[in-house]
Simulated scan of single mutants.
Amino acid sequence: MDARVLRIARRVALSALTVLGAITAAFFALRLVPIDPAFVIAGAGSDAVAITPEVLQAIRTEYHLDQPLPLQYLLYLSRLVQGDLGMSYIQEQPVLQLIAEQARPTLALAALASTLAVLLSLAAGLLTAGRRRAGALAGMVELVLASTPVFWIGFLLMLLFSVWWQVFPLLDKGDLRSLILPALTLALPMAAPLAQVLRRSLEDVLEQPFIMTARARGLSVLAVKLRHALRHALVPYLTMLGFSFGALLGGAAITETLFGRPGLGRLLVNAVTRQDMPLVLGLVTVSTLAFVIVNLLIDFAYLLVDHRLKSVLPPA
């Protein structure tokens, strides 16, 4: 078998193990929480006195909660491979259906935030690479953005653009204008490390001999960066982009709650608050799968941006 195919198969297998590891850790962590799922299912939070031991035992039997924990885990995996994420304890609906209903707002938010982050980081990296003062100033701004919690950035954007200047709505109204501030809230801290990585990578490439040749042809500094240096500097940038996607998923929960938006992040917050374990586990599974798929696509993109790579995937 071709070495390239073997490396691809290895990378896919490692990704599958990553998803399995995340599911396993989340499953046992949720089961170790000192909360009886039977009480949650029966609505014990509102009327615990009316719940009898017989009712609790019937619920445990129905949901296999009376089985040993390893067996519960295997039962969950067997349903998972069939596309069944279980039933929500609180909403009594299939978890997959609940996730599908809330996926569209989160996908729209993630897509716009990622686009803004890429555009901002590319602009910052290209304009400041090789310029000492501009690079130092940009680095300070990026350090502040990368170190500031997402909710603080969102709060400041709301204060400036919604309360003081009244450019964008304060809370979600279901239109594009309502999406701008949440997307910026996620994009700014995501763009900061991307710009730092791109700037450093560009500065390394700009010292290479072939750049001197390009400059000798009379090309402008920006043209040299765009036509010759950027392609070679994108590999570490893409790697950081894959890592940043995990932070984007985590920040979505805070951002959607802060701006009153529907979506998977807000669904996760509500599920944790209401102790809806199947929904929490389903959201962890879907989020991990999305993270792994994005990083796989980025791995495959390495060859497109740098023809010097001898295989589709970098060494694992």
Score class of each variant (00 low, 15 high):
D172Q: 10
V286Y: 07
R133P: 08
A195V: 00
M87G: 06
P278D: 09
D172P: 00
I59Q: 07
P70C: 03
T285L: 07
T18N: 12
S178E: 11
A301K: 10
Q72I: 01
A48E: 10
I298W: 05
L297H: 02
L206V: 07
P70T: 07
A113G: 06
L296V: 04
A103V: 04
Q275T: 04
L119F: 11
Y302N: 11
G242R: 02
W165E: 08
E203S: 04
R10G: 14
V19N: 07
A9L: 15
G83F: 02
S244R: 10
S178L: 11
L230N: 00
A129E: 05
A271W: 05
T115R: 01
G154I: 06
V312W: 15
T148E: 00
W165C: 07
T213K: 09
V33Y: 13
V12H: 05
V205N: 10
M158F: 12
R60A: 11
I254P: 11
L157G: 03
P262K: 05
L296M: 13
V235N: 14
R308A: 00
L17K: 10
R10A: 14
A191P: 02
E54L: 00
A50N: 07
R11K: 15
Q275A: 14
S178D: 09
P314C: 10
A253S: 13
A195D: 03
T239I: 01
Q196R: 10
V144F: 13
L85M: 13
L156D: 05
F155A: 15
V167S: 09
E101W: 01
M158G: 13
A301H: 10
K225L: 07
I180R: 06
L80D: 06
L249F: 00
V224E: 06
M240Q: 15
A58H: 14
V141H: 06
Y73L: 06
T255A: 05
G251Y: 12
A26P: 05
A16M: 15
V272P: 02
